[in-house]
Design a binder for these strands. Structure first.
Lengths: 141, 141
DNA sequence: ATGTCTGCAAATCCTTTGCATTTTA
DNA sequence: TAAAATGCAAAGGATTTGCAGACAT
């Protein structure tokens, strides 16, 4: 399991590689993403940063920049709004997300290879997928 | 493969069973969903109905009613907006959707059982999932 | 120094809500 | 005729855009 510092440094390197600047908002946002290591909405990230430190727009713009740089992932949810998480370099996994309290856990497995192959056979390229489970957790039952 | 007429009649029965009224907008919307048999946005459905016949709001309200009645499904997409399709009663499948032209094909397989089991073991109930693939189709390459 | 990033305000997109009128059962 | 569905207008929430000033390289 890579340390928080390592994940942070790796992200900073990616920024440099993409010729993106290392700014205060970006450092703070990366630090937060590294620490929480679970998917949060732009709004939640903004609040966690202390809403008055940085603008919500800056959070959105940086999340987009991170996504393009391969540093973060956007997860579309059942409700239509998006969650963001740090890109898990080597591991590929999905989540089970409680519909009520948004408690989230990782599910360390991904069984979509068969479907991706089917899609490739149909002539599709640049294939990605969205796979998230939703349910009600024990506390909210 | 059930005929269009049969799928339409089944949907009408479901409406009756739920004590929902059989109105002109609902009949037209169901007819359209039966005919296209691929996921469309509320906007696209509205356009296909002839934008001046029925209000877009009515389309939204009926799609919600259909969803609650188990007649239609909402599919959250990568971009955040939703697509709707008629509920495929017996079969459970997913789609590969072209990022550029929205050409859509069914992938007749679903391999998520293992993940649902994992989630159940974690104490979650009422588990559902969202699984869609995205790519670029041959024409758009 | 210069091109990038930020904050603020305002716009946009999709979707939902309120209310008076029409329609279905 | 009573309850439910519709249309229109307006609100709502999440995200994006424009632009002038601030900052990183």
């Amino acid at each position: 399991m890579p340390s928080s510092n390592h994940r942070f440094d790796t992200a900073i390197s990616s920024l440099k590689k993409e010729k993106l600047r290392i700014t205060e908002p970006r450092k703070a946002l990366l630090q937060l993403l590294v620490e929480v290591s679970k998917p949060l909405s732009a709004e939640e990230l903004h609040e966690n940063l202390g809403s008055d430190h940085f603008d919500l727009v800056t959070v959105y713009r940086n999340l987009e920049a991170f996504e393009n740089a391969g540093i973060a992932n956007r997860i579309p949810t059942e409700s239509g709004k998006s969650l963001y998480e740090l890109n898990a370099e080597q591991h590929h996994y999905h989540h089970i997300i409680c519909r009520k309290c948004h408690h989230t856990e990782k599910l360390d497995s991904c069984e979509v290879m068969k479907l991706e192959t089917l899609a490739k056979d149909l002539g599709y390229s640049e294939i990605t997928h969205v796979l998230e489970l939703y349910g009600v957790c024990e506390n909210c039952r």
